[in-house]
Write a protein that binds this DNA or RNA. Structure first.
Lengths: 334, 334
DNA sequence: GCGGATGTTTTTAACGTTCAAAATGTTCGT
DNA sequence: ACGAACATTTTGAACGTTAAAAACATCCGC
């Protein structure tokens, strides 16, 4: 483990000169720079991050609380984490994982990590309606950015990046419409989460805009499970005027619709168009493949990081990104 | 941000005494300890981890490379990460995520993170047949432990923790046998991965032990998808002697079997018993629920951490843990 | 060849902590 | 009341880096 001092001795310059060779190479005379670089290479020197952080009081680590809900599944978590890591690394930073109790009970953990200088700031995800973490972190002046809006905020929320769920639903509706569908249903969630309302609104507005019916076509599922999706689909299919298209709030619910249709001898796509949300690994693993709305993970991650690290000069700190419709067999024209 | 010096001034002791109050409280006279603790509390002091790490040269961070395979899904990744974080935190450590190219191409990244003192060591996962990372890290004397055996090693591998796939398959076979099944098939993967062979062997041996047939009952699927699982199941059901039980190598393949049975008007459980592997979120989200083999994530994680941190005095550094059969409707007696 | 501007390198002093050794205080047997 | 043994506290130095200022070198115009 070579240190600056050893490199300096080897290159016959002062310690500070070696430091400059790394952090401000333009200050060195070209020949000195080359000599120092040779020594660095030769001794295989790597700067000690702890010493650097102590001096500069910046650790270049970003905290992310790994979520754990017993019942809800997080099928795109690995995609998100990978994108987040990659984005952090483009600016020389890394992601530090930790666990914490939900909501405001977890805040002391955030505070502690920041106070002990284990992280510079945080990326939040799975923001809830009126998420208390925003206000708390803001009060403590701890840098953060959240993936997901704070729905129905009372206080001014902090910076966020989110995906436009309403636009996503509208895309799905439009796509089914273009495929000839004229009665498009919506599978939703039980409790009014901001996310569910957002996606529901997008469906309703686009249907109205296209002159399509909506009454009796929005079904709330009891939970995010294949069974509930299937049950809701059965309910729709058994009604007087069954739908010929189904936009689901999640891939899981869509998979339920997929199964119910198959069970009844109907083919998703050929008979009833089905779309899901999030383009989870499941979407490509069924047959016909499930048309779904892909969240632009790489873009989300890089926006999060650039807002958090203050790289995004002048850019707004509230960014609504557009999902992308990934078309597979389940929404083929009838 | 209070420092040791400020706390010391406030408590009217030396800096070292405050340090001792935190790291070796038995050295202080009870009344001094209490006075120092009061000052610590009052000033809301938190030790600066960078300064500590610089001095002790231990960062208490463990690196984990977040895997990314475009085609293969990692449905239990969030469970694993959560368990790993929680286990790390019980010893005051944290997980640092990073990305790296696969196999030996990624090793410079590991080396760099260690040399710059961003991490003390690594947890590997998804070890491959003859994984080159083991030997590489061992040569460089970088501490690590892997989740997953190194199959067919030529060199002496490093420490690992793994789940006994053979025992898992045997459990599943026995369970189906106890439910009255007498022709139990096995859905496997294409290329001979150590993991697949392990699970396959467990099925074959237990079948033989129970006097059950195995010939023609092991099918290799082209990839880990629902479609392939369904195709393989169709192949089995169409044969002269169709199976009455199916043990699948993964939940995804099992879901394929599940679907194929349903499509044919058969009920998983009532007609053909089906089991999966890993107890992914999918298992509980279909109906009837999929019987699956749960990996003891919490135990895996704590073994990994204790081996890595050297807490496991005397314990072997190769630990094979037993999966647990989670019984759901898909394997109900016929 | 001198003052000033600019370019390059070194010196000094931290950042906040812990280790090792030294200093001081306390207890106790005799 | 003395010193040995022990308990408690302080001092000095170090971990490896960078910021700021000082020192030194070079170049230019006049």
């Amino acid at each position: 483990m070579a240190t600056l001092k050893q490199v300096a001795a080897h290159a016959e310059v002062s310690v500070q000169t070696v430091s400059n060779a790394l952090n401000a190479p333009h200050r060195l005379r070209p020949d000195t720079l080359e000599r120092v670089n040779r020594s660095i290479e030769l001794l295989n020197y790597r700067p000690n991050r702890n010493a650097r952080s102590l001096r500069t009081s910046a650790v270049e680590l970003i905290g992310y609380c790994v979520p754990s809900w017993p019942n809800q599944t997080h099928l795109v978590m690995d995609q998100f984490l990978h994108a987040l890591c990659a984005a952090a690394e483009t600016s020389g930073r890394h992601i530090l994982l930790f666990t914490a109790p939900a909501a405001v009970q977890g805040m002391p953990v955030y505070d502690d990590l920041h106070a002990r200088r284990l992280v510079d700031g945080f990326v939040l995800s799975q923001t809830e309606t009126h998420d208390p973490r925003h206000g708390w972190l803001k009060d403590k002046q701890i840098p953060f950015v959240s993936f997901g809006r704070v729905w129905k905020q009372t206080t001014q929320p902090g910076p966020w990046v989110d995906v436009d769920g309403a636009a996503g639903s509208a895309l799905a509706v439009q796509h089914l419409y273009d495929a000839g569908r004229r009665r498009i249903a919506f599978l939703s969630w039980p409790k009014t989460s901001g996310l569910a309302e957002d996606r529901l609104t997008g469906w309703r507005n686009r249907c109205k805009k296209l002159g399509l019916p909506t009454t009796g076509l929005a079904v709330r599922c009891g939970e995010d499970s294949i069974d509930e999706g299937a049950r809701a689909t059965a309910e729709l299919l058994d009604s007087d005027q069954p739908p010929d298209g189904i936009v689901a709030l999640s891939d899981i619910l869509a998979l339920g619709a997929h199964r119910e249709l198959s069970d009844r001898g109907l083919t998703p796509g050929a008979d009833v168009g089905v779309t899901g949300f999030d383009d989870s690994p499941l979407a490509s693993v069924v047959s016909p493949g499930l048309t779904s709305l892909r969240q632009p993970m790489d873009q989300i991650a890089s926006e999060l990081i650039s807002i958090l690290t203050g790289t995004s000069n002048g850019m707004p700190t509230e960014r609504l990104l557009q999902p992308e419709l990934v078309i597979r067999g389940s929404s083929a024209p009838g």
